[in-house]
């Protein structure tokens, strides 16, 4: 059974819709992981122990286990708890939480690296502790870790392929649908790989832009 790419165009619209879903899930999960990462970092550093401990435990579990396993936990675990979410939402939560933990590690280090004088100055000017964190310390910390967070987001794009196993019809699953009808796995997975590669390039360009916009040495 040689290769025959002429079967691909008939399924191009299915695949393109898959690409859109991949972009949608990546953007949603990236936003969740970014703001979740900030939240986790603040809790891990400043919250009282009864908040800090669960977040630390959660981070430890999520950094030590595979994303695929976490997706199964979230998808089936939520059902077990009586929460029946669509696969897309479960996928966003799973991917978002997984990368939030990694982002949180970066942001924690960055928050600690912001000069203490910044907090002191803000407090002297009459800001409360929370205000000083929100308006002075965190913006500086986040700006410092934009490049590594960007790398995490690019990893997130590629890992979004995993949500196909819980039934989100993104690029990987739509390719599988086409394969199910045509029995041409090589052709469609190769096409999917090309689309991922292109989206990946696009995302790298977006990240570079964000880095340039947010860096101080403009």
């Amino acid at each position: 059974m040689g290769l025959d790419f002429t079967v691909v165009p008939a399924y191009l619209d299915t695949i393109l819709i898959g690409v859109l879903w991949t972009i949608a899930i990546t953007v949603c999960a990236a936003l969740l992981s970014f703001f979740g990462g900030i939240l986790f970092a603040v809790i891990a550093l400043y919250a009282p122990w009864f908040l800090r401990l669960p977040v630390r435990l959660f981070a430890w579990l999520f950094m030590g286990t595979p994303l695929l396993l976490q997706l199964f936990l979230i998808y089936f675990g939520l059902v077990e708890l009586g929460i029946d979410l669509p696969a897309f939402v479960a996928g966003v939560i799973g991917l978002g939480l997984h990368f939030a933990v990694y982002n949180s590690e970066l942001i924690q280090t960055a928050i600690l690296a912001v000069d203490n004088g910044q907090m002191e100055a803000a407090r002297t000017l009459g800001c409360s502790r929370a205000q000083a964190l929100r308006k002075v310390v965190i913006p500086q910390a986040v700006r410092d870790v934009i490049p590594p967070i960007g790398n995490n987001m690019i990893a997130l794009l590629k890992d979004s392929a995993l949500v196909s196993v819980i039934g989100v019809s993104e690029l990987t699953l739509s390719s599988q649908l086409a394969i199910g009808r045509t029995y041409r796995p090589f052709e469609f997975y190769a096409v999917a790989a090309v689309f991922y590669y292109v989206v990946n390039l696009g995302m790298e360009a977006v990240m570079r832009r964000i880095e340039r916009k947010t860096s101080l040495s403009r």
Partner: peptide, 16 residues
């Protein structure tokens, strides 16, 4: 590209 796609390409597409 995603590792999952590479794996599928090799395992399912390899025989072709």
């Amino acid at each position: 590209t995603p590792a999952l796609i590479q794996l599928f390409l090799l395992y399912f597409g390899g025989p072709q």
